[in-house]
Design a protein around this nucleic acid. Sequence first.
DNA 1: TCCGATAGTGTCCCTAGGATACTATCCCAT
DNA 2: ATGGGATAGTATCCTAGGGACACTATCGGA
Lengths: 244, 244
Amino acid sequence: MTDRDVPADLGRLWRIPAPARLGRPAELDLDRVVRAAVDLADRDGLEGVTLQKVAQALGFTKMSLYRHVGSKDELFELMADHANGPAPDLGDEGGWRDGVRRWAGAIRARYTEHPWLVDMPISGPPRGPNAISWMDAMLRVLRNSGLDLGTQVGVLTVVSGYVGHAMALTRQMARGREGTGLSQVDVEQDYGRTLAALVDPERFPYAAKLFGGDVFEPEAGTDDFSFGLELVLDGVAAAIDAVG
Amino acid sequence: MTDRDVPADLGRLWRIPAPARLGRPAELDLDRVVRAAVDLADRDGLEGVTLQKVAQALGFTKMSLYRHVGSKDELFELMADHANGPAPDLGDEGGWRDGVRRWAGAIRARYTEHPWLVDMPISGPPRGPNAISWMDAMLRVLRNSGLDLGTQVGVLTVVSGYVGHAMALTRQMARGREGTGLSQVDVEQDYGRTLAALVDPERFPYAAKLFGGDVFEPEAGTDDFSFGLELVLDGVAAAIDAVG
DNA sequence: TCCGATAGTGTCCCTAGGATACTATCCCAT
DNA sequence: ATGGGATAGTATCCTAGGGACACTATCGGA
C-alpha cells in the first residue's frame, strides 16, 4: 500500500521524493533533465537525443545525468510520460462516442506536438502517472457504457493502438522525403507510382489494381485518421450493443 | 513501367538482378546476408543484430556486407520483409470476416515466429514484395465486400495496426521480467499490484478502481487478442453495412 | 595476356552508452 | 566552529557499433 519496495525507476517516474536529504544538495533535478531531453527530441527527433547532448544543453557533464536517471531507456520512458502530459478534461457532452473521439483527438494532438513519441520503443503497459491519467480519462468516458472493466481496458488498447499506428504511418510517410520540399500528397503519389512499376499484376492482382489505380493520386483525400477511428468506434458500439 | 530509376534499396528489396555481371563473381549474396541476420535476430533479438556478428556468422568481414546492403537500416527492412514471408493462401471459405480473421491469425503467427518484428522501427507503408503480398491477400479477401479500394486500404491499416500493437503489448509484457521464471499471469499480477500502490484514488478514481479490482489477478483470462480483433471486425462489418 | 570491373579486407575514425574512481560541496552532530 | 560522512558532479577509460576509404585479390572478356 505504501511506497515500500517500489523499484527505483518507478519511484522516479512518479516523482516520489527521496527519503533522506543529506549531503550536498543537487543543482540538477530530474525534471530539468527530462525537459532538456524532450526539447532536444522536439528539435532533432529521438535519434538526436544522446546523453552527451542533453548534458551539454544543461551545462553539465554526461555522467552527471546518471545521478538522476538510471539509464537511457529510463530517460526515454520519462520523456514519453512527460510529453504525453496529463490528459485534459474531456467533459461529459455527447455520450461515450463523442468522449472517445475527443480522447483520440487529444492524444493525437500530443503526438503531433511530439512526433518522436511514435518512434519510442513500446515499453509495455502504461506505468507513468501521465499515462495513467490518459487511462483514467478513457475509463471515465466509458464508465456508463455498460461494459465491464476488462472490456473497457480492451477498448482502450484498441483505440490507443489505432491512434499510435495511424500517427506512425503518417509520420513515416512525411519523413520519407524529408529534405525535399515535397508535400504529403507528392510523397503518396511518388510511393504509388514507384510501386506501380514493381508490382506485377500476375503475381499480385489486387495490389496491382490498387497501385495502378488512382488511390494514391492527388484527390480529395478523405481523412484517413477519422475513417479508421470511426471504424473502431463502430466496433466499440457493437460491443456495447451486445452487452445491452 | 520498367525498372528504370528504381532506387537501389528498392531494387534490392525486390531482388532485381544487377544489369551487368562483370568482374569477380560474388561468393556472398543478399539472401545469405539477410538469412544470417534473421537467424541472429531469432536467437538474440533485434539488439543482437550487429554487422559484426552477421559477418562473423557468415565467415566474412563486417565491411563486406556493405557490398550487398546499403546500410543497417536497409538490412532491417530486408529482414522484415524476409521474416514476414509471402502471405499464405487464405482460401475462400466463409466470407470476408473469416478471411480477415485468417489473415490476422496468419500474420500473428509470423510475429510469434519472429518476435523482434514488433521492435522494428516502422519504416512507412509496405514496400517489399512480401509486404505487398500480405496487402494483396487482404485486398483479395475484401474484394467482394462492396467497399471501395481506398476503404479497403483503410481496413487493412486498422487491422494490421491492431495486430502489430497487440503483439507488441504481449511481447513487452512477457519481456518485462524475462530472466525471472515468472509466467505471463505473474507479470500481469505484479504489474497490477505495483500500480495499485501508486495510483491514488483521489487523483485517478477510475484507474484506481481498475488496479484495486481483480482485473489483473489470475482468472480465466479472456483472449485479449480475439477480443480486440472481433471489435475491429465489428467495425468493418458496420462499414460494409453502411455501403450496402 | 592483360585491362578493368567487381568482391572482399584492413585500418581508421567518430559517436555512443556506461563503469569506476575521483574531487567538490554541503549538512549535521559534536 | 569544525570535521566527518553523505551526496553531487567530474575525469578518464573502455567497449562496441556504424561507416569511410584505400587497398588487394580475383575474375571475364577483348
